[in-house]
Each structure stands twice: as structure tokens, then as C-alpha cells.
Simulated scan of single mutants.
Amino acid sequence: MLSTIALKVDVDTLRGTCEGVPRLMALLERLQVQASFLFSLGPDHTGRAVRRILRRGFVGKLRRTSVVSHYGLRTLLYGTFLPGPHIGNQCAAQMRAVMRKGFEVGVHAYDHVKWQDGVAGASLDWTRAELIAARDVFADIFGYPPTLHGSAGWQMNRYVPSLQRELGFKLASDTRGDMPFIPPGGIVQLPTTLPTLDELIGRDDLPEPSPIDTLLRLTRTSPLYGHVYTLHAEIEGGAYLGEFERLLQGWRQQEYRFVTLGMLGDSLEKTELARCELRQGTVPGRAGVVAIARPSRHQKRTGSSS
């Protein structure tokens, strides 16, 4: 049986939706590769991310990853010097094209920057309002409510898992980690298991000549439940499209099978998954903290109830 890699495409911006997504679709279709596309659906306020400049490591990331070239100067002004365009209103056709091509679609956020910078300390009402806003725009665009969620920036709070269940989501990829789990009151979590390209670009502490070679080294062996790799429409769908193709070809040579998050979730239906609480942790190459799993001390391993 081939090991699996679930490809999760995070789409953060208007530019990523209108330009990066079509490029990625064309590549994935040509190589016959499955993937899940998770969309930011409301206003593009990317420029407001400058508030993260005080976070340890954020300036270094900006220097390493050439943010202007990936996102474009106009995008970096949205929400500050330029009004934030509503992605769902302007890019609905591009989003529906993804569904028509047979790729899985889901929710990344309503307002990407607002969620990433605000959800960790947000109230129950704030969190519910943001999830409902994303759910409603998604349903307007695709004609059915979303069942897949992947939090912007892997940012969570204690209310998110139960709200996801309440609002009809069936599967989530909001966290970083090594294996699937179920948070208290929530739905199955499929953590991102591999570093992202922007966490590897420009680092001088890695032995390989390129981020792609680092990723291929990390996938020489497969974990029990396979890998989840998160890519970005603005990076792999932009300047790194050719390198991303090399990565896909390398994974093919390593005998991986490409699946969607939904396909990975379906394969776990009869699998006993750990019950884990959420906590904050760090990831090499990424500024700030992200949501990760903390095994529950008082709960035994149990079957999925999603």
C-alpha cells in the first residue's frame, strides 16, 4: 500500500485566489494530483499583518521569504492604505472552478488577518461570528455549507472545536503535529505534519541546498497516518510553482499517493484516535505560536465520532 500525502492549499489573499489558484489547478490536473483548497472568503486585509512586526522572528521571516515578491505591493497595502477587497465577491468564479474540476474545497477564514491575529484571545461570540460569516459566504458561492475547515495561521482558541461541530463542519486541519486526533467536544483534526515552504526558504541552518531537498529528506519515511503538507497559493502558485512541481515528482518517486483531506479523513473512520487537548507551541522557521495537540491525561484512546 502506498503511503499518502494530503495536499492542503491555503488561499490567503485576493491575488492568491485569482492568480495562484488557477496556476496550481493547471499543474495538479496535468500531474493528476488530488488536493484540498481552503479559501479566505471575506475582506483581504493583508496589510494589517504589519502589526506582527513585534513578534520574535517575524522580521527575519520577511527578509528570508521576499514577501513583496510573493504577495505583491498592492496586496500588502490592503486594509491600510487601500481598502480591503472582498475576496468572495470578486473571485467566486475562480473558487467555483476549483469545485468543478473535482478538487475538494473548504474554509480557511472569513477575514484571514483578523482570525490569525485575534482568535487566540477572542470570546465565544467573536469566534462564532467569524465562523458563521465564513460559512455563509462559502454556502453562497458553492451552493452547500462547508464541512472542511483549516484555521488561518494554525490559530485556535478553546471555543473553536465545539463551534465547528455545532456549525456542521466534519473535518478540520487547524493544527501542527504528527498524527490525527480529536479535541474535546470537537471533530477530527488532521495536523500539518511537514514544514511549509515559507518556513524553510532562506534558512542557513539546513544541510540541503534548497527547501525542496529538505522536504524530500523529511519524507523518506512515512508516519503511520501519512503526511499533511500545507502549501500556499501565493507561494507555490507563484514564484515557486516550478519547484513545487519538482517536489511533487520527488514524492512520486518516493511512492507516495496524493489524497485530499477528506480522503484521509475517510481512511480513519474505523481508526482509534487519541483524545487530545489543544495548546500553543512553536515551529522552527515560523514566528509566534501555533495550535498543537497535548495528549489528555485522563482519557483513553477512543474511536472517531465525527
Rank of each mutant, 00 (worst) to 15 (best):
L224I: 12
G177F: 12
A172K: 10
L194W: 03
L215G: 00
G168D: 05
F169N: 09
A172R: 01
L194V: 09
P191I: 03
S162I: 08
P211M: 13
P191K: 07
T193A: 11
I187Y: 00
P195F: 02
P161W: 01
S210G: 06
P211G: 10
S222Q: 08
E208H: 09
D198Y: 04
P183Q: 06
T192E: 03
Q189S: 12
P180R: 07
P195K: 07
S162V: 09
T221P: 02
T219W: 01
L218N: 07
L190W: 10
L218R: 15
L190I: 11
P184I: 02
P183D: 04
D174L: 01
P223Q: 09
P183A: 07
D213Q: 12
F181N: 09
P191L: 05
S210A: 11
P207V: 15
I212E: 05
S222C: 15
P191E: 04
L190T: 10
L171R: 10
M179Y: 10
P209C: 05
L197T: 15
L171W: 01
R220D: 12
T214L: 03
L194F: 08
L171V: 11
T175S: 12
P161M: 02
P191G: 06
I182P: 06
G185V: 12
I212D: 00
G177M: 11
T219D: 05
F181V: 09
A172V: 13
L194C: 06
L167T: 00
L200F: 03
S210P: 05
D178S: 10
P180F: 09
A172T: 08
L224Y: 12
D174T: 09
T196I: 10
F169D: 01
D205W: 03
I182Q: 15
V188H: 09
I212R: 09
L171F: 05
L200Q: 07
D174V: 02
L218F: 08
D198G: 01
P180M: 01
L206A: 02
I201G: 01
S162L: 02
L215D: 02
D178T: 11
L171G: 07
F169W: 09
P180G: 07
P207M: 07
K170N: 15
S210Q: 04
S210R: 13
L171S: 02
S222F: 05
T192I: 13
L206W: 06
L190H: 04
P184D: 01
G186Q: 01
P209V: 02
P183W: 04
D205E: 10
P211A: 06
L197V: 14
E166K: 13
S222I: 00
